[in-house]
Amino acid sequence: MSVSDEDFEIMSRQLGRKIRGAVEVSYRTPDGQPAVVKTTPKLPDGTPFPTLYYLTDPRLTAEASRLEVAGVMRTMQERLGTDEALAADYRAAHEHYLAERNAMEDLGTDFSGGGMPDRVKCLHVLIAYALAEGPDRVQLGTEAVALAAAHTPKLSGTAIPADWPTPESLGTSLEAAMAE
């Protein structure tokens, strides 16, 4: 998959700046918009850019920000510290992320994205990762996408696949994720 001139222009408008290091559109919304771009580990000017999957769709970036402000990262971080299976899934997702990025170019670092493997630092990265690779790759990303659809239902079927797992099917809820 590559980035067409049209997708390049759309994603540049979405971000409000020229997109850099784009390799492919890794996720396109149900309504046809490019929403996640896969980027090179180094930008054309040589600057390291360890974020493999980058969220571009403004509907999704806004929702990721709303969920971050609502405390979702904090509750995910707490669960990561107490749920061994969740922590193992997160470590596996981290290792896969590194392998995918390093297959293009090894940056010589074990930093992946979103705070993996120990912290939940950025829902934008987790949502991009889950949408790019599907709901079976990174549980916390899959949950973040599900929470976005539950929090803003109009995203389901437009920006998020209508058949994406629900928070309840994943063993959580919007209320639990945003608990103080």
Rank of each mutant, 00 (worst) to 15 (best):
D57F: 01
R59E: 08
R59W: 03
L60F: 05
L60G: 05
L60K: 05
L60T: 05
T61V: 15
A62H: 05
E63I: 05
E63H: 03
A64S: 13
A64W: 07
S65T: 15
L67W: 04
E68L: 09
E68M: 13
V69I: 14
V69G: 10
A70K: 12
G71L: 04
G71Y: 01
G71S: 05
M73Y: 09
R74H: 12
R74N: 14
T75E: 06
T75K: 06
M76D: 07
R79V: 04
G81V: 00
G81M: 00
T82E: 09
T82Y: 02
T82K: 11
D83N: 14
E84G: 11
E84S: 14
A85R: 10
A85S: 10
A88R: 06
A88H: 00
D89G: 11
R91P: 07
A92E: 14
A92D: 13
A93D: 11
A93C: 12
H94K: 12
H94N: 14
H94F: 12
H96E: 15
H96C: 12
H96T: 15
Y97S: 08
Y97I: 05
L98Y: 06
L98E: 07
A99Q: 13
A99P: 10
E100A: 15
E100Q: 15
N102S: 08
A103D: 08
A103H: 06
A103G: 15
A103W: 03
E105H: 10
L107T: 06
L107G: 08
G108W: 04
G108P: 07
T109Y: 11
F111E: 09
F111C: 04
F111G: 03
S112D: 12
G114H: 02
G114I: 02
M116Y: 01
D118L: 10
R119H: 09
K121A: 12
K121Q: 11
K121D: 13
C122Y: 03
V125N: 10
V125L: 12
L126K: 14
L126V: 13
L126T: 13
A128S: 04
A128T: 02
L131H: 04
E133N: 12
G134A: 09
G134R: 10
G134C: 10
D136K: 14
R137H: 12
R137Q: 14
V138I: 15
G141C: 00
G141P: 01
T142I: 10
E143C: 11
A144F: 08
A144T: 10
L147S: 00
A148H: 05
A148C: 08
A148R: 04
A150P: 00
A150E: 07
H151T: 10
H151W: 09
H151C: 09
H151Y: 09
T152K: 12
P153K: 07
P153E: 06
P153H: 06
P153F: 07
K154M: 15
S156C: 00
T158K: 07
I160A: 00
I160W: 01
P161H: 02
W164E: 08
P165T: 03
T166P: 05
T166G: 06
T166Y: 04
T166H: 05
P167M: 03
S169H: 01
L170E: 01
